[in-house]
Nucleic acid binder design. Structure first.
Lengths: 229, 229
DNA sequence: ATATAAACCAAATCCAAATTGGTATCCAAC
DNA sequence: GTTGGATACCAATTTGGATTTGGTTTATAT
Protein backbone atom coordinates (compact mmCIF):
# COMPACT_ATOMS: atom_id res chain seq x y z
CA UNK A 1 0.00 0.00 0.00
CA UNK A 2 1.74 3.07 -1.26
CA UNK A 3 -0.65 5.74 -0.12
CA UNK A 4 0.25 6.77 3.42
CA UNK A 5 -3.08 8.52 3.92
CA UNK A 6 -4.63 5.15 4.53
CA UNK A 7 -2.73 4.72 7.74
CA UNK A 8 -4.11 7.71 9.64
CA UNK A 9 -7.54 6.54 8.57
CA UNK A 10 -6.84 3.17 10.10
CA UNK A 11 -5.53 4.71 13.31
CA UNK A 12 -8.55 6.93 13.64
CA UNK A 13 -10.61 3.81 13.25
CA UNK A 14 -8.88 2.30 16.22
CA UNK A 15 -9.48 5.45 18.23
CA UNK A 16 -13.19 5.42 17.53
CA UNK A 17 -13.33 1.70 18.17
CA UNK A 18 -11.66 2.30 21.53
CA UNK A 19 -14.07 5.17 22.29
CA UNK A 20 -17.02 2.88 21.66
CA UNK A 21 -15.54 0.14 23.79
CA UNK A 22 -14.91 2.53 26.69
CA UNK A 23 -18.43 3.95 26.44
CA UNK A 24 -19.93 0.48 26.49
CA UNK A 25 -18.11 -1.23 29.35
CA UNK A 26 -18.99 -0.25 32.91
CA UNK A 27 -15.61 0.19 34.51
CA UNK A 28 -14.81 -0.17 38.17
CA UNK A 29 -15.35 2.55 40.74
CA UNK A 30 -11.80 3.79 40.45
CA UNK A 31 -12.21 4.20 36.70
CA UNK A 32 -9.49 1.71 35.91
CA UNK A 33 -9.71 -0.01 32.55
CA UNK A 34 -8.16 -3.35 31.59
CA UNK A 35 -4.38 -3.54 31.09
CA UNK A 36 -3.07 -2.85 27.62
CA UNK A 37 -2.25 -6.50 26.94
CA UNK A 38 -5.81 -7.61 27.63
CA UNK A 39 -7.33 -4.61 25.89
CA UNK A 40 -5.35 -5.14 22.71
CA UNK A 41 -6.44 -8.75 22.61
CA UNK A 42 -10.07 -7.86 23.29
CA UNK A 43 -10.13 -5.25 20.55
CA UNK A 44 -8.22 -7.45 18.14
CA UNK A 45 -5.47 -4.89 17.56
CA UNK A 46 -1.81 -4.97 18.33
CA UNK A 47 -0.57 -3.41 21.55
CA UNK A 48 1.42 -0.86 19.57
CA UNK A 49 -1.65 0.41 17.73
CA UNK A 50 -3.71 0.38 20.91
CA UNK A 51 -1.10 2.51 22.61
CA UNK A 52 -1.27 5.04 19.79
CA UNK A 53 -5.01 5.31 20.31
CA UNK A 54 -4.50 5.62 24.07
CA UNK A 55 -1.99 8.38 23.40
CA UNK A 56 -4.69 10.32 21.58
CA UNK A 57 -7.22 9.93 24.38
CA UNK A 58 -4.60 10.81 26.97
CA UNK A 59 -3.70 13.97 25.02
CA UNK A 60 -7.38 14.83 25.07
CA UNK A 61 -7.32 14.50 28.84
CA UNK A 62 -9.95 11.78 28.84
CA UNK A 63 -7.72 9.28 30.58
CA UNK A 64 -4.39 9.11 32.35
CA UNK A 65 -1.83 6.35 32.77
CA UNK A 66 0.82 5.44 35.28
CA UNK A 67 3.42 2.68 35.19
CA UNK A 68 2.61 -0.16 37.49
CA UNK A 69 -0.81 1.26 38.33
CA UNK A 70 -2.76 1.11 35.11
CA UNK A 71 -4.86 3.31 32.83
CA UNK A 72 -7.75 5.29 34.28
CA UNK A 73 -10.64 7.29 32.90
CA UNK A 74 -11.07 10.91 33.91
CA UNK A 75 -8.50 13.50 34.79
CA UNK A 76 -5.34 12.70 36.65
CA UNK A 77 -5.71 13.28 40.40
CA UNK A 78 -3.96 16.38 41.56
CA UNK A 79 -0.38 15.91 42.60
CA UNK A 80 0.04 17.73 45.86
CA UNK A 81 3.75 17.84 46.26
CA UNK A 82 4.46 21.55 46.21
CA UNK A 83 1.27 22.28 48.13
CA UNK A 84 2.59 22.96 51.59
CA UNK A 85 5.66 24.81 50.43
CA UNK A 86 3.63 26.90 47.99
CA UNK A 87 1.01 27.65 50.63
CA UNK A 88 3.64 28.64 53.16
CA UNK A 89 5.28 30.96 50.67
CA UNK A 90 2.06 32.82 49.96
CA UNK A 91 0.80 32.85 53.53
CA UNK A 92 1.89 34.58 56.72
CA UNK A 93 1.56 34.15 60.49
CA UNK A 94 -1.58 36.29 60.71
CA UNK A 95 -3.32 34.20 58.07
CA UNK A 96 -2.27 31.01 59.80
CA UNK A 97 -3.81 32.21 63.05
CA UNK A 98 -7.02 33.21 61.27
CA UNK A 99 -7.20 29.78 59.63
CA UNK A 100 -6.61 28.08 62.98
CA UNK A 101 -9.38 30.13 64.58
CA UNK A 102 -11.70 29.11 61.75
CA UNK A 103 -10.88 25.41 61.78
CA UNK A 104 -9.77 24.22 65.19
CA UNK A 105 -12.82 25.23 67.26
CA UNK A 106 -15.07 23.27 64.91
CA UNK A 107 -12.72 20.29 64.91
CA UNK A 108 -12.77 20.54 68.70
CA UNK A 109 -16.55 20.58 68.66
CA UNK A 110 -16.57 17.38 66.58
CA UNK A 111 -14.01 15.82 68.93
CA UNK A 112 -16.28 16.50 71.91
CA UNK A 113 -18.77 14.19 70.23
CA UNK A 114 -16.46 11.33 69.46
CA UNK A 115 -13.48 11.39 71.83
CA UNK A 116 -12.76 8.05 73.47
CA UNK A 117 -11.45 7.63 77.03
CA UNK A 118 -8.08 6.79 75.49
CA UNK A 119 -8.10 10.09 73.59
CA UNK A 120 -8.88 12.00 76.76
CA UNK A 121 -6.19 10.14 78.68
CA UNK A 122 -3.64 11.17 76.06
CA UNK A 123 -4.86 14.76 76.25
CA UNK A 124 -4.36 14.73 80.01
CA UNK A 125 -0.87 13.33 79.53
CA UNK A 126 -0.09 16.23 77.20
CA UNK A 127 -1.40 18.68 79.80
CA UNK A 128 0.83 17.21 82.50
CA UNK A 129 3.92 17.04 80.33
CA UNK A 130 3.48 20.57 79.01
CA UNK A 131 3.36 21.83 82.60
CA UNK A 132 6.54 19.93 83.42
CA UNK A 133 8.40 21.13 80.34
CA UNK A 134 11.84 22.53 81.06
CA UNK A 135 12.20 24.41 77.79
CA UNK A 136 9.95 26.20 75.35
CA UNK A 137 10.85 23.60 72.77
CA UNK A 138 9.54 20.79 74.95
CA UNK A 139 6.45 22.81 75.80
CA UNK A 140 5.66 23.44 72.16
CA UNK A 141 6.09 19.76 71.35
CA UNK A 142 3.48 18.79 73.94
CA UNK A 143 1.25 21.69 72.94
CA UNK A 144 1.35 20.56 69.32
CA UNK A 145 0.64 17.00 70.34
CA UNK A 146 -2.34 18.08 72.43
CA UNK A 147 -3.90 19.95 69.55
CA UNK A 148 -3.32 17.02 67.22
CA UNK A 149 -4.75 14.55 69.73
CA UNK A 150 -7.92 16.63 69.74
CA UNK A 151 -8.00 16.48 65.95
CA UNK A 152 -7.46 12.72 66.08
CA UNK A 153 -10.35 12.42 68.53
CA UNK A 154 -12.69 13.76 65.86
CA UNK A 155 -12.28 10.32 64.28
CA UNK A 156 -12.35 11.87 60.82
CA UNK A 157 -9.25 11.09 58.81
CA UNK A 158 -10.03 13.86 56.36
CA UNK A 159 -10.34 16.52 59.07
CA UNK A 160 -7.14 15.17 60.59
CA UNK A 161 -5.41 15.43 57.23
CA UNK A 162 -6.54 19.02 56.79
CA UNK A 163 -5.36 19.79 60.31
CA UNK A 164 -1.98 18.25 59.51
CA UNK A 165 -1.74 20.37 56.38
CA UNK A 166 -2.55 23.50 58.34
CA UNK A 167 0.03 22.51 60.93
CA UNK A 168 2.71 21.86 58.33
CA UNK A 169 2.11 25.30 56.86
CA UNK A 170 2.22 26.81 60.34
CA UNK A 171 5.60 25.20 61.01
CA UNK A 172 6.90 26.33 57.63
CA UNK A 173 5.66 29.89 58.12
CA UNK A 174 7.02 30.28 61.63
CA UNK A 175 10.29 28.63 60.62
CA UNK A 176 13.24 30.59 61.91
CA UNK A 177 11.05 32.64 64.23
CA UNK A 178 12.78 31.67 67.41
CA UNK A 179 11.21 32.57 70.67
CA UNK A 180 12.99 35.53 72.15
CA UNK A 181 12.67 34.39 75.74
CA UNK A 182 15.12 31.69 76.72
CA UNK A 183 13.24 30.91 79.92
CA UNK A 184 10.80 28.09 80.22
CA UNK A 185 7.03 28.67 80.36
CA UNK A 186 5.95 30.21 83.63
CA UNK A 187 3.49 28.28 85.81
CA UNK A 188 0.80 30.89 85.17
CA UNK A 189 1.16 30.71 81.39
CA UNK A 190 -2.28 31.40 79.95
CA UNK A 191 -2.36 28.22 77.84
CA UNK A 192 -2.33 25.90 80.84
CA UNK A 193 -5.73 26.89 82.18
CA UNK A 194 -7.17 27.27 78.67
CA UNK A 195 -5.99 23.84 77.60
CA UNK A 196 -7.45 22.27 80.71
CA UNK A 197 -10.79 23.98 80.18
CA UNK A 198 -10.89 22.54 76.66
CA UNK A 199 -10.08 19.00 77.75
CA UNK A 200 -12.57 19.26 80.61
CA UNK A 201 -15.28 20.32 78.18
CA UNK A 202 -14.47 17.44 75.85
CA UNK A 203 -14.53 14.99 78.73
CA UNK A 204 -17.95 16.24 79.86
CA UNK A 205 -19.24 16.14 76.27
CA UNK A 206 -19.94 19.86 76.52
CA UNK A 207 -19.59 20.52 72.82
CA UNK A 208 -20.41 24.21 73.01
CA UNK A 209 -17.84 24.79 75.74
CA UNK A 210 -15.26 22.76 73.83
CA UNK A 211 -15.62 24.89 70.72
CA UNK A 212 -15.81 28.14 72.70
CA UNK A 213 -12.79 27.16 74.80
CA UNK A 214 -10.68 26.40 71.76
CA UNK A 215 -11.76 29.65 70.10
CA UNK A 216 -10.94 31.68 73.20
CA UNK A 217 -7.58 29.94 73.53
CA UNK A 218 -6.57 30.61 69.94
CA UNK A 219 -7.73 34.21 70.16
CA UNK A 220 -5.49 34.65 73.19
CA UNK A 221 -2.61 33.13 71.25
CA UNK A 222 -3.36 35.46 68.35
CA UNK A 223 -3.41 38.50 70.62
CA UNK A 224 -0.08 37.57 72.21
CA UNK A 225 1.37 36.97 68.77
CA UNK A 226 0.33 40.37 67.46
CA UNK A 227 1.35 42.19 70.65
CA UNK A 228 4.86 40.95 70.26
CA UNK A 229 5.29 42.39 66.81
CA UNK B 1 13.59 -13.24 101.10
CA UNK B 2 10.53 -12.42 103.13
CA UNK B 3 10.70 -8.68 102.85
CA UNK B 4 8.59 -7.63 99.82
CA UNK B 5 10.24 -4.21 99.78
CA UNK B 6 13.08 -5.78 97.90
CA UNK B 7 10.95 -6.20 94.80
CA UNK B 8 10.19 -2.53 94.13
CA UNK B 9 13.85 -1.90 94.69
CA UNK B 10 14.69 -4.49 92.11
CA UNK B 11 12.23 -3.04 89.58
CA UNK B 12 13.68 0.42 89.98
CA UNK B 13 17.03 -1.21 89.44
CA UNK B 14 15.86 -2.51 86.10
CA UNK B 15 14.66 0.95 85.10
CA UNK B 16 18.03 2.49 85.92
CA UNK B 17 19.82 -0.39 84.25
CA UNK B 18 17.72 0.21 81.16
CA UNK B 19 18.42 3.94 81.32
CA UNK B 20 22.14 3.27 81.42
CA UNK B 21 21.91 0.83 78.54
CA UNK B 22 19.96 3.31 76.42
CA UNK B 23 22.42 6.10 77.22
CA UNK B 24 25.36 3.89 76.26
CA UNK B 25 24.28 2.37 72.96
CA UNK B 26 24.24 4.53 69.89
CA UNK B 27 20.92 3.71 68.34
CA UNK B 28 20.05 3.97 64.69
CA UNK B 29 19.06 7.18 62.96
CA UNK B 30 15.39 6.51 63.47
CA UNK B 31 15.92 6.03 67.19
CA UNK B 32 14.74 2.47 67.12
CA UNK B 33 16.01 0.20 69.86
CA UNK B 34 16.25 -3.60 69.79
CA UNK B 35 13.04 -5.64 70.05
CA UNK B 36 11.91 -6.57 73.50
CA UNK B 37 12.90 -10.21 73.11
CA UNK B 38 16.52 -9.31 72.28
CA UNK B 39 16.66 -6.53 74.84
CA UNK B 40 15.44 -8.74 77.66
CA UNK B 41 18.09 -11.31 76.78
CA UNK B 42 20.82 -8.67 76.53
CA UNK B 43 19.94 -7.17 79.91
CA UNK B 44 19.48 -10.57 81.51
CA UNK B 45 15.94 -9.85 82.68
CA UNK B 46 12.65 -11.40 81.77
CA UNK B 47 10.52 -9.82 79.10
CA UNK B 48 7.79 -9.13 81.66
CA UNK B 49 10.11 -7.08 83.86
CA UNK B 50 11.64 -5.32 80.89
CA UNK B 51 8.18 -4.27 79.74
CA UNK B 52 7.46 -2.82 83.18
CA UNK B 53 10.58 -0.70 82.89
CA UNK B 54 9.64 0.31 79.34
CA UNK B 55 6.21 1.29 80.64
CA UNK B 56 7.87 3.71 83.03
CA UNK B 57 10.00 5.31 80.36
CA UNK B 58 7.04 5.52 78.00
CA UNK B 59 4.94 7.23 80.66
CA UNK B 60 7.79 9.71 81.03
CA UNK B 61 7.53 10.38 77.32
CA UNK B 62 11.14 9.35 76.72
CA UNK B 63 10.18 6.64 74.26
CA UNK B 64 7.17 5.37 72.36
CA UNK B 65 6.11 1.98 71.11
CA UNK B 66 3.93 0.67 68.33
CA UNK B 67 2.90 -2.90 67.54
CA UNK B 68 4.72 -4.29 64.55
CA UNK B 69 7.02 -1.30 64.29
CA UNK B 70 9.11 -1.37 67.43
CA UNK B 71 10.19 0.84 70.31
CA UNK B 72 11.71 4.24 69.60
CA UNK B 73 13.48 6.93 71.60
CA UNK B 74 12.07 10.43 71.68
CA UNK B 75 8.51 11.60 71.24
CA UNK B 76 6.10 9.90 68.89
CA UNK B 77 6.36 11.33 65.39
CA UNK B 78 3.15 12.71 63.99
CA UNK B 79 2.44 10.56 61.00
CA UNK B 80 0.97 13.25 58.85
CA UNK B 81 -0.96 12.23 55.78
CA UNK B 82 -1.49 15.37 53.75
CA UNK B 83 -1.37 13.48 50.49
CA UNK B 84 -4.66 13.76 48.64
CA UNK B 85 -4.52 10.28 47.16
CA UNK B 86 -3.75 8.78 50.56
CA UNK B 87 -6.52 10.82 52.15
CA UNK B 88 -9.03 9.76 49.54
CA UNK B 89 -8.09 6.13 49.99
CA UNK B 90 -8.66 6.24 53.73
CA UNK B 91 -11.73 8.42 53.65
CA UNK B 92 -15.32 7.95 52.46
CA UNK B 93 -18.29 10.07 51.33
CA UNK B 94 -19.76 10.33 54.82
CA UNK B 95 -16.48 11.65 56.21
CA UNK B 96 -16.18 14.14 53.38
CA UNK B 97 -19.63 15.50 54.14
CA UNK B 98 -18.82 15.77 57.84
CA UNK B 99 -15.61 17.62 57.03
CA UNK B 100 -17.48 19.99 54.70
CA UNK B 101 -20.04 20.71 57.42
CA UNK B 102 -17.22 21.47 59.84
CA UNK B 103 -15.21 23.71 57.53
CA UNK B 104 -17.37 25.45 54.98
CA UNK B 105 -19.79 27.26 57.31
CA UNK B 106 -16.86 28.87 59.11
CA UNK B 107 -15.17 29.75 55.83
CA UNK B 108 -18.48 31.25 54.76
CA UNK B 109 -18.62 33.23 57.99
CA UNK B 110 -15.17 34.64 57.27
CA UNK B 111 -16.21 35.40 53.70
CA UNK B 112 -19.17 37.44 54.94
CA UNK B 113 -16.60 39.71 56.58
CA UNK B 114 -14.33 40.21 53.64
CA UNK B 115 -16.24 39.56 50.40
CA UNK B 116 -15.82 42.30 47.80
CA UNK B 117 -18.53 43.42 45.37
CA UNK B 118 -16.64 41.55 42.66
CA UNK B 119 -16.78 38.36 44.73
CA UNK B 120 -20.52 38.77 45.18
CA UNK B 121 -21.04 39.47 41.48
CA UNK B 122 -19.27 36.22 40.64
CA UNK B 123 -21.40 34.36 43.16
CA UNK B 124 -24.53 35.71 41.51
CA UNK B 125 -23.21 34.60 38.15
CA UNK B 126 -22.75 31.10 39.50
CA UNK B 127 -26.32 31.14 40.81
CA UNK B 128 -27.70 32.11 37.41
CA UNK B 129 -25.62 29.61 35.45
CA UNK B 130 -26.40 26.75 37.82
CA UNK B 131 -30.13 27.41 37.28
CA UNK B 132 -29.61 27.32 33.52
CA UNK B 133 -27.60 24.10 33.54
CA UNK B 134 -28.79 21.49 31.06
CA UNK B 135 -26.99 18.56 32.66
CA UNK B 136 -25.98 17.48 36.14
CA UNK B 137 -22.39 17.79 35.06
CA UNK B 138 -22.81 21.44 34.19
CA UNK B 139 -24.75 22.09 37.36
CA UNK B 140 -22.05 20.52 39.49
CA UNK B 141 -19.40 22.61 37.77
CA UNK B 142 -21.21 25.86 38.69
CA UNK B 143 -22.02 24.58 42.15
CA UNK B 144 -18.37 23.80 42.74
CA UNK B 145 -17.36 27.20 41.42
CA UNK B 146 -19.83 28.96 43.72
CA UNK B 147 -18.48 27.21 46.78
CA UNK B 148 -14.94 28.03 45.73
CA UNK B 149 -15.80 31.66 45.08
CA UNK B 150 -17.06 31.87 48.65
CA UNK B 151 -13.79 30.38 49.87
CA UNK B 152 -11.87 32.89 47.74
CA UNK B 153 -13.89 35.70 49.27
CA UNK B 154 -12.45 34.85 52.67
CA UNK B 155 -9.26 36.43 51.32
CA UNK B 156 -7.18 33.88 53.17
CA UNK B 157 -4.89 31.92 50.86
CA UNK B 158 -4.37 29.25 53.51
CA UNK B 159 -8.08 28.69 54.04
CA UNK B 160 -8.52 28.60 50.27
CA UNK B 161 -5.76 26.02 49.99
CA UNK B 162 -7.36 23.86 52.66
CA UNK B 163 -10.70 24.19 50.87
CA UNK B 164 -9.07 23.10 47.61
CA UNK B 165 -7.56 20.11 49.35
CA UNK B 166 -10.91 19.14 50.79
CA UNK B 167 -12.46 19.54 47.36
CA UNK B 168 -9.83 17.42 45.65
CA UNK B 169 -10.46 14.64 48.15
CA UNK B 170 -14.19 15.00 47.61
CA UNK B 171 -13.80 14.59 43.86
CA UNK B 172 -11.53 11.59 44.32
CA UNK B 173 -13.83 9.92 46.86
CA UNK B 174 -17.10 10.49 45.02
CA UNK B 175 -15.62 9.51 41.69
CA UNK B 176 -17.74 6.96 39.92
CA UNK B 177 -20.56 7.17 42.43
CA UNK B 178 -24.05 8.55 41.87
CA UNK B 179 -24.11 7.92 38.15
CA UNK B 180 -27.71 6.79 38.24
CA UNK B 181 -29.38 10.12 37.43
CA UNK B 182 -29.33 11.06 33.76
CA UNK B 183 -31.82 13.91 34.14
CA UNK B 184 -30.90 17.51 34.72
CA UNK B 185 -31.59 19.34 38.01
CA UNK B 186 -35.25 20.25 38.46
CA UNK B 187 -36.19 23.93 38.89
CA UNK B 188 -37.20 23.34 42.49
CA UNK B 189 -33.91 21.67 43.41
CA UNK B 190 -33.28 22.47 47.06
CA UNK B 191 -29.83 23.91 46.42
CA UNK B 192 -31.10 26.88 44.40
CA UNK B 193 -32.91 28.59 47.25
CA UNK B 194 -30.25 27.62 49.77
CA UNK B 195 -27.46 29.00 47.62
CA UNK B 196 -29.29 32.27 47.16
CA UNK B 197 -29.90 32.61 50.87
CA UNK B 198 -26.18 32.20 51.50
CA UNK B 199 -25.16 34.79 48.91
CA UNK B 200 -27.82 37.19 50.19
CA UNK B 201 -26.48 36.86 53.71
CA UNK B 202 -22.92 37.50 52.54
CA UNK B 203 -24.05 40.54 50.59
CA UNK B 204 -25.81 41.97 53.64
CA UNK B 205 -22.80 41.19 55.85
CA UNK B 206 -25.06 39.01 57.96
CA UNK B 207 -22.29 36.85 59.32
CA UNK B 208 -24.43 34.56 61.42
CA UNK B 209 -26.92 33.96 58.60
CA UNK B 210 -24.11 33.22 56.17
CA UNK B 211 -22.65 30.53 58.40
CA UNK B 212 -26.06 29.13 59.33
CA UNK B 213 -27.18 29.11 55.71
CA UNK B 214 -24.12 27.20 54.57
CA UNK B 215 -24.51 24.74 57.42
CA UNK B 216 -28.18 24.16 56.61
CA UNK B 217 -27.35 23.73 52.94
CA UNK B 218 -24.65 21.14 53.54
CA UNK B 219 -26.83 19.28 56.02
CA UNK B 220 -29.50 19.03 53.35
CA UNK B 221 -26.92 17.72 50.90
CA UNK B 222 -25.77 15.21 53.49
CA UNK B 223 -29.31 14.03 54.14
CA UNK B 224 -30.00 13.59 50.42
CA UNK B 225 -26.73 11.71 50.07
CA UNK B 226 -27.51 9.30 52.88
CA UNK B 227 -31.13 8.80 51.78
CA UNK B 228 -29.99 7.51 48.47
CA UNK B 229 -27.97 4.71 50.02
C1' DA C 1 8.59 1.56 5.59
C1' DT C 2 5.45 0.01 8.73
C1' DA C 3 3.33 -2.89 11.74
C1' DT C 4 3.69 -6.84 14.70
C1' DA C 5 5.44 -9.65 18.07
C1' DA C 6 8.54 -10.47 21.58
C1' DA C 7 11.67 -9.22 25.18
C1' DC C 8 13.13 -6.20 28.61
C1' DC C 9 12.83 -2.30 32.19
C1' DA C 10 11.30 0.23 36.20
C1' DA C 11 7.52 1.47 38.97
C1' DA C 12 3.79 -0.22 41.49
C1' DT C 13 1.13 -3.88 43.45
C1' DC C 14 0.23 -8.28 45.65
C1' DC C 15 0.84 -11.91 48.85
C1' DA C 16 2.72 -14.92 52.10
C1' DA C 17 6.13 -15.15 55.78
C1' DA C 18 8.54 -13.10 59.43
C1' DT C 19 8.77 -9.49 63.04
C1' DT C 20 7.05 -6.93 66.95
C1' DG C 21 4.51 -4.95 70.84
C1' DG C 22 0.48 -6.48 73.54
C1' DT C 23 -2.04 -10.05 76.10
C1' DA C 24 -3.49 -14.35 78.17
C1' DT C 25 -2.30 -18.70 80.37
C1' DC C 26 0.04 -21.91 82.99
C1' DC C 27 3.48 -23.04 86.28
C1' DA C 28 6.96 -22.62 89.95
C1' DA C 29 8.59 -20.20 94.08
C1' DC C 30 8.11 -18.34 98.40
C1' DG D 1 -2.15 -16.24 97.57
C1' DT D 2 0.58 -13.42 95.37
C1' DT D 3 4.49 -12.65 92.33
C1' DG D 4 7.45 -13.40 88.55
C1' DG D 5 8.95 -16.18 84.54
C1' DA D 6 8.23 -18.89 80.49
C1' DT D 7 5.34 -19.90 76.69
C1' DA D 8 1.92 -19.35 73.34
C1' DC D 9 -0.98 -16.66 70.82
C1' DC D 10 -2.89 -12.24 68.61
C1' DA D 11 -3.05 -8.26 65.62
C1' DA D 12 -0.51 -4.69 63.46
C1' DT D 13 3.42 -3.95 60.68
C1' DT D 14 7.26 -4.81 57.98
C1' DT D 15 9.82 -7.45 54.66
C1' DG D 16 11.02 -9.67 50.45
C1' DG D 17 10.09 -12.01 46.36
C1' DA D 18 6.90 -12.76 42.60
C1' DT D 19 3.60 -10.58 39.66
C1' DT D 20 1.46 -6.91 37.15
C1' DT D 21 1.65 -2.83 34.33
C1' DG D 22 2.83 1.07 31.39
C1' DG D 23 6.97 2.41 28.71
C1' DT D 24 10.79 1.19 25.53
C1' DT D 25 13.70 -1.35 22.51
C1' DT D 26 14.76 -4.91 19.09
C1' DA D 27 14.08 -8.18 15.63
C1' DT D 28 11.21 -9.93 12.02
C1' DA D 29 7.91 -10.11 8.44
C1' DT D 30 5.05 -8.24 4.98
Amino acid sequence: MLNPSADPHLEKGIVTQLRGYLAQIDLADDGRLPPERELSAALGVSRTELRKALDVLEAEGQLWRHVGKGTFMGSRPLDTFADIAALARRSNPAEVMRARIVMEPEICRAAAFTATPEDIAEMRLCLTRSRQADTWRQYEAWDTRLHRTIAEASQNTLLLGLFDTLNAVRRAVTWGRLRTEPVKPLPDHHSFAEHEAIVDAIEHRDIAAAAAGMRAHLQTVERKLLDRQ
